[in-house]
Computed example of a mutant assay.
Amino acid sequence: MSGTSILNVRGDSEYVSSLTPYEPLLCHAFIATFVCCASGVIAGVKPAALFNFRPEAACCAWQGSRLRAKTCELFRLFTKEISAHGVSLMTVGTCHGRMALVAYRPELIDELLQDSDICAFLDNAGYPTTSSRQLMRAFRLRLARYYQAKTLKTYVSEDVVNGASAVTPSVEFPHEMGVVFGYPLEDVLGFIHKQPHTCRGAWCAYGNAELARQRFERLAQSEGACLRRFRSGSSLVELLAS
């Protein structure tokens, strides 16, 4: 990418014109989505975040296959730049024109893998736990299967409406990923086993409600501070450096 780095995009302006030949509005729309949805990862208080990006909503000059190609190129360059700040990005699927992505900090996930209970839980679920790289690769495969099945189900539903009949494979969302998103193991297990929750916030909690509320508040403060800085003029690279 020539000109200014995409990481210099700020939330108080519509675009950075020097990002050409890449579409400035596409770059800004993606960075704004990234900061909004992955602020906990940017702030270093969450290991990972799953979010969607819809390129067509960027109102840029490209459409169709050209827009998809340019978006993939944008992701490739963004992934390279942001890796220097300890953050990785991977595309895990598409559905209804939305691209599903996971932003994560390998260092924080490696720290999770030092917890014997979390490792035992992931081992039992069939995941490799020797490194964040292997774990996230396995999660990517499971998420890809989930989104592929979801897309196929949409097409089949349209066929049924038109009078055709078909059977679609059932693929569950890999809820084990909750531990990677920073949810306590007891909450992930409680959700998977459909236990009655004790408290709701950024996720459903199944243990001590007061402790859960404190966790929600700390996360909200960190994410809120990150978003406010971005919207007040800080660039993504400044957020990552602080």
Rank of each mutant, 00 (worst) to 15 (best):
G3V: 09
S5C: 08
N8I: 00
V9G: 01
C27H: 04
H28F: 12
I31F: 03
A32R: 14
V35R: 01
A43M: 05
G44N: 07
A48F: 03
C59V: 09
A61N: 14
S65E: 15
S65L: 14
S65V: 15
R66Y: 08
L67R: 06
E73W: 11
L74T: 05
R76W: 02
F78K: 03
T79A: 15
I82H: 05
A84E: 14
H85K: 13
S88H: 11
V92A: 03
R98G: 03
A103G: 01
P106F: 02
Q114P: 01
S116A: 15
A120W: 07
A120H: 09
D123S: 11
N124Q: 15
T130F: 10
Q134M: 08
A149V: 08
S157R: 14
D159A: 14
N162W: 05
S165C: 14
T168H: 06
F173G: 07
F173C: 11
P174L: 07
P174M: 11
F181P: 05
Y183G: 06
E186M: 13
V188K: 02
L189R: 14
Q195V: 08
A202M: 12
G207R: 01
N208Q: 15
E217D: 15
R218G: 08
S222P: 10
R228Y: 05
R231M: 09
G233T: 11
S235I: 00
